[in-house]
């Protein structure tokens, strides 16, 4: 089980290194990076997470402002270049306080403090919300047959309906945390469970032929567990 997290950090270099630390440690999934508290709040209103790596001083709302606004608080690890915030940080009952820049060992020490009982049920995602015609529509992962790129938009195809929303395949590839999905082509992500058959460089899902690129074919074969 991994902790789902987001990084709220206006310094890009700091966010890159933190993300790499998370990848290296193997128990933190970074779902997204935001450069402002406002963007993070919007995301959190739709997608709860277990942990936030939170910078304190950012343009607009500060990290403390964000914690004041959050109604359900995930675990928080504050990241700041200013040690004078340490007292305030512990008033907010944060899990830890990392002074930038920090070493990988210091990061690991911080991760050890995370409470595994706080992992939310959303760690095992089973659905996604997409924006369609001004409203948020819930789609269960199990219902998605495939997702097709339409330039700046994507089409979610389910047995009952097709939904078009403003997004990209690249973004969805990073957002959907389910082992049932695989990008088989630059324009297609498919639900492995929905595949009817595979022939040459195409696969068939509910009567639709989906192209499989050379680069992704071996990944597909691995996923399908061909015997």
């Amino acid at each position: 089980m991994k902790f789902t997290s987001i990084i709220v950090e206006d310094l890009h270099s700091a966010a890159i290194l933190l993300q790499r630390h998370c990848e290296r440690c193997g128990i933190i999934d970074v779902l997204a990076h935001f450069t402002s508290a406002e963007e993070a709040l919007h995301f959190l209103s739709i997608t709860p997470v277990d942990l936030i790596f939170l910078d304190v001083e950012m343009p607009g709302k500060s990290g403390f402002d964000l914690m004041d606004i959050l109604q359900t608080k995930p675990m928080i690890i504050l990241t700041t270049a200013d040690t004078s915030y340490a007292y305030n940080a512990f008033e907010y009952h944060v899990t830890d306080f990392l002074h930038k820049p920090f070493t990988y060992q210091r990061f690991l020490d911080s991760i050890k403090k995370l409470d595994k009982t706080n992992i939310s049920s959303t760690s095992v995602e089973s659905f996604i919300f997409i924006k369609v015609n001004g409203k948020l529509v819930k789609i269960n992962y199990a219902d998605i047959l495939y997702i097709e790129s339409l330039g700046d938009y994507v089409k979610f195809v389910t047995p009952q309906k097709k939904y078009i929303t403003h997004n990209t395949i690249k973004n969805l590839e990073a957002t959907i945390h389910s082992t049932d999905f695989l990008k088989v082509h630059r324009s297609f992500i498919v639900n492995i469970n929905a595949i009817d058959d595979v022939q040459d460089n195409n696969l068939l899902i509910s009567g639709s032929f989906i192209p499989v690129s050379k680069a992704n074919k071996s990944k597909l074969v691995q996923k399908l567990k061909v015997v």
Binding site: H12, S13, I16, L17, R20, R24, P101, F102, T103, Y104, Q105
Partner: peptide
């Protein structure tokens, strides 16, 4: 101590 010898991440962070 920061990069643990990961030269690719070092390059990425230096560039940024």
């Amino acid at each position: 101590e920061m990069y643990q010898g990961d030269i690719h991440t070092t390059l990425e962070v230096f560039e940024s």
